[in-house]
């Protein structure tokens, strides 16, 4: 069951986060902890603020008030450049669909984060290839996203999120556009790979079967979080 993860000091902490988009208040006092290496499912009704919270945790959105701490640093206090650097190095992302650059081949898509972080082309593509292999899509390396199926594309996206071996991977409904069999396969490979690299995963999902791959869940409702205590 919930094995050895979820102990000690949290890796990523949201504390009393408020955020509004104009009139709509998306988060009203959300607090959450993400521990190193754990898989945390974010569940909750549509429009409750899951994606918004995820984006805050990842430093894509800046909260109106409250703090997001990664280690001992407050994301809100960092400059855009610093946050970009952090995202390049420490975070990875998988979204529902439409995330691969259509003109690049699958291999180049996976290599892209490494290249953005300054790696050479050869080295980046070599590492990208091993990740495609781990996600069992090595044969797609030379194809463009438009030429692969949704499930295959999603596995390429997972490879891309993992290739930098980030500390946290943010996944917003990664299987949302897939049928259950494909979704299941993606999740299996995704979570196994994440556990291997020791990456924490923040997983937004509506599907209980997908959430079942997590170690614990947090429920977002009306912009607030009810967080399940980590198991002792």
């Amino acid at each position: 069951m919930t094995t050895t993860v979820g102990r000690g000091t949290p890796l990523l902490t949201a504390d009393d986060v408020h955020l509004s988009f104009g009139e709509t208040t998306a988060l009203r006092g959300a607090s959450l902890h993400v521990y190193a290496g754990e898989v945390l499912a974010l569940m909750g009704p549509s429009g409750s603020g899951k994606s918004t919270l995820l984006h805050c945790l990842a430093g894509i959105l800046t909260p109106g008030s409250g703090s997001i701490r990664y280690g001992d640093r407050d994301l809100a206090r960092m400059s855009d450049t610093e946050r970009s650097t952090l995202r390049r190095g420490a975070f990875g992302f998988v979204f529902q669909f439409g995330q691969l650059v259509p003109e690049l081949t699958c291999l180049e898509n996976v290599a892209l984060p490494l290249r953005l972080a300054g790696a050479g082309r050869r080295e980046a593509q070599r590492r990208a290839a091993t990740w495609l292999d781990r996600l069992e899509v090595a044969d797609l390396a030379g194809k463009r996203p438009g030429q692969v199926s949704g499930g295959q594309g999603q596995r390429v996206a997972v490879a891309r999120a993992l290739v930098t071996e980030p500390a946290v991977i943010f996944a917003d409904e990664p299987t949302g556009a897939l049928d259950s069999l494909n979704g299941e396969l993606v999740m299996k490979l995704f979570i196994a790979a994440a556990r291997d690299t020791g990456a924490a995963v923040v997983l937004v999902t509506h599907e209980p079967r997908v959430a079942a791959y997590s170690d614990r869940e947090a429920v977002v409702r009306d912009g607030r979080v009810r967080e399940q205590e980590p198991a002792r």
């Binding site: 990842a58 894509i60 946050r83 970009s84 650097t85 952090l86 995202r87 390049r88 190095g89 975070f91 990875g92 992302f93 979204f95 439409g98 995330q99 691969l100 650059v101 259509p102 892209l112 984060p113 953005l116 972080a117």
Partner: peptide, 10 residues
Amino acid sequence: VLAVLVAFGT
């Protein structure tokens, strides 16, 4: 795609 690239820290 652009938004995703930015999320990745581009």
